[in-house]
Amino acid sequence: MPGTHHIDHEFTQYLYETLPVTYPVLTDIASLVETLRTAQQGVERTLNARNSRTPNP
């Protein structure tokens, strides 16, 4: 059975040739990771602020 890698590669080039990135899925994943990290940091800051204001028993 012949491989389809060459056809897949050409199709991928056709789909993404006008985009400024080589691997758009990886770019989207990296962007999502950064968004999640920023959100996590915000949650951690809020929780830390709340904990520092709460007196310990």
Rank of each mutant, 00 (worst) to 15 (best):
E34G: 05
H9W: 14
A39N: 07
P24G: 09
N51S: 15
Y14R: 03
V43T: 10
S52D: 00
Y14M: 12
S52Q: 09
E34R: 11
D8T: 07
L36F: 15
P20G: 10
V33F: 09
H9G: 02
T4S: 12
N51M: 14
V21F: 10
Q13P: 00
V33R: 11
T18G: 15
Y14C: 02
T12V: 13
L47N: 12
N48L: 14
P2N: 05
R37F: 15
E44L: 02
S52R: 06
E34T: 11
T18W: 09
P55F: 00
E44I: 11
T22C: 02
V25H: 06
V33P: 00
L26N: 04
V21H: 03
M1F: 07
R37W: 11
H6N: 08
A30H: 06
M1G: 11
P55T: 00
I29Q: 04
H6M: 10
S52C: 01
V43D: 04
E44G: 01
R53K: 13
L19C: 00
P55R: 05
H6P: 04
R37I: 15
T22D: 03
V43R: 05
L32H: 13
Q13M: 08
L15I: 11
E34P: 02
P2F: 03
V25N: 03
L15H: 07
T18A: 15
T35M: 06
L19V: 08
L47M: 14
G42C: 01
Y16R: 04
R50D: 06
G3D: 10
T46D: 12
T54V: 08
R50V: 15
T35N: 05
D8A: 07
L36A: 11
V33L: 10
R53G: 11
I7P: 01
A39E: 06
Y23F: 09
T22S: 05
D28Y: 03
V43H: 08
T22I: 04
Q40D: 12
T4M: 11
P57W: 00
G3R: 00
E10N: 04
V21Q: 06
I29D: 08
P2Q: 05
N48I: 08
D8M: 03
R45W: 07
T46A: 15
L47V: 13
I29R: 06
Y16T: 11
T35L: 10
N51K: 14
P24A: 05
I29V: 15
V43L: 06
T38F: 03
D28R: 12
I7L: 14
P24C: 12
V25C: 06
T54E: 14
T22F: 01
D8N: 04
R50W: 09
P20R: 07
G42W: 00
V43S: 09
R37Q: 15
Y16D: 02
H9A: 15
L26F: 09
G3L: 03
Y14T: 10
R53T: 08
S52N: 01
T4L: 13
P20V: 10
A49W: 07
E10L: 13
G42N: 03
Q13N: 01
P24H: 09
P55D: 00
V21N: 02
H5F: 15
D8Y: 05
Q40V: 11
Y14Q: 08
R37G: 09
